Amino acid sequence: MRKTLLASVAALAVVPALAACTENASDKNGGKGGDARALTVTSSADGCELSAGKAPAGTLTFDVTNTGSDVTEFYLLGSDGLRIVGEVENIGPSLTKKLTVNAPAGDYFTACKPGMVGEGIRAAFTVSPSDDEQETSASDQELIDQAQANYRAYVQDQSGQLLEKTKQFVELYEGGKDDEARALYPVAREHWERIETVAESFGDLDPLTDAREADVDFAAGEKWTGWHRIEKDLWPPAKGYQALKPAARKTYGDDLLKNVTELDRRIQATGADALSYPIDAIANGSIGLLEEVAKGKITGEEEAWSHTDLWDFQANIDGARVAYEGVQPLLENKDAALAKELTTKFAALQKLLDQHRAGDGFVLYTELTQPQVRELSDAVNALSEPLSRLTAAVTS
């Protein structure tokens, strides 16, 4: 079966849910307001309640409200429990966010993830065949085809550059050339960050490659590997840290390169194994990359030792902008005002970020003042609201 943009190669058994994800008994036959494709989700500390456990094929919307005390996420997963069809992240307490996704008939899982950790609270979800799916005009289809081809080429190019830079980085790190490795670290990671939503979709690769120390459950026996494990060794804490010996450096370096090589293999695959890029996934990818900025880069939590968060910030914005510009011609046909607003706010955010450039890169995150951080955060929030409407607009 042809894999979608957010596809995992391995088809593993679904991990048992933390708690039952339930269907609201008051609306079992459809979504809110009688629209069977418009569903509501209530995410609490120990529950994930949907207004319906099924919907007809087509463009589905999930209005996700967080009634718990921790930040939560919501996912629509493929039948293997790994393939991410759509996701909405960083939903704070008492807030509501919308996920819009085009779902063909088939079996799925929904998942809420209170605290944004673990496997989440899961339940089966069914999308049934439908005869009333919206038809796409020939002119719109031409724009969609072009957007898909362009985005595929972009992702493949960035993946190829990521692999090449990772090879160079690992060689420097394993060879003990720390100053050169530190200089290359944020540059190499830019290619990862530009396609982070695609990389994250491979549930078996992302945690091995990009997990932060705070994401790892050491008590449960999880091992910490990847970029940030090496980052800590290159920028060690002042006290209490034991530097890795050459043999350990080689182990972590080789493991990082192995996983990045596998990521590139999957992204570059052709034929039956090739990734496809549905228009809703491209739009959701733009939204997701801005969410990555909001939940990690703007707080300085991503690069806890190197403090190169602004390189990541820029790369996420690059990826979000490229994904948006790919669907922009289609959006201009459907909602010209939204297209103009998004173009203006992307430019405003970039102008603000450019103020923190230094040489070929940026100042360290620790050099930003609190007013400067708030200014960046406000600009991200100003872009986030209209960008959240992108997928619904281009799939309407």
Rank of each mutant, 00 (worst) to 15 (best):
K245R: 14
L383G: 03
G296A: 14
L289E: 07
A337C: 04
E231H: 06
V117K: 15
T395A: 06
N66G: 05
D63S: 14
S94H: 09
A315D: 06
L76T: 08
R83C: 15
Q314A: 13
A247Q: 08
I282K: 01
G253A: 04
Q161L: 14
S44I: 04
Y277S: 01
A248N: 12
N284C: 04
T40D: 14
D179V: 04
T22H: 04
R212K: 12
T72I: 11
L77Q: 03
L331M: 05
R83K: 13
G288V: 06
E262N: 11
T344G: 01
V127P: 01
E164F: 08
L289W: 08
P237K: 02
R321S: 11
V117E: 12
A220W: 06
P186N: 08
K223M: 07
E119V: 13
G92F: 12
K32F: 14
A269Y: 01
E87G: 14
S306Y: 03
P93A: 09
A358R: 15
A10L: 15
Y151R: 04
D131R: 13
M1D: 11
L289Y: 08
Y173M: 03
G34H: 05
D178R: 09
A103T: 04
R266N: 13
I267K: 06
V155N: 01
R152C: 13
G106V: 00
A181S: 09
G221N: 09
I195K: 00
A147F: 00
D312Q: 05
D233H: 09
E135F: 09
I287H: 06
K32D: 13
A247E: 09
D255I: 12
W224Y: 09
K97M: 09
D254S: 15
N102T: 07
T308Y: 08
L184Q: 07
D210M: 01
E171H: 08
G115W: 05
S26P: 03
A36C: 10
S306A: 06
Y324M: 04
L256D: 07
S201K: 07
I267M: 11
G81Y: 05
L290E: 01
T344N: 03
A336M: 08
V127C: 02
L390M: 05
S276I: 06
I317L: 15
R266H: 15
R152N: 14
L342I: 00
A17R: 02
K351A: 13
N381T: 12
A123N: 12
I282S: 02
G203C: 13
S79L: 04
A323Y: 01
L205H: 03
L331F: 00
T61E: 10
L12C: 13
Q168C: 00
G30V: 12
A13R: 07
E49V: 15
W311A: 12
K98L: 05
D70H: 10
G120L: 10
E49L: 13
D63P: 08
A183D: 07
A57F: 06
N259M: 08
K258F: 14
A392I: 08
G58A: 07
D354V: 07
Y324V: 00
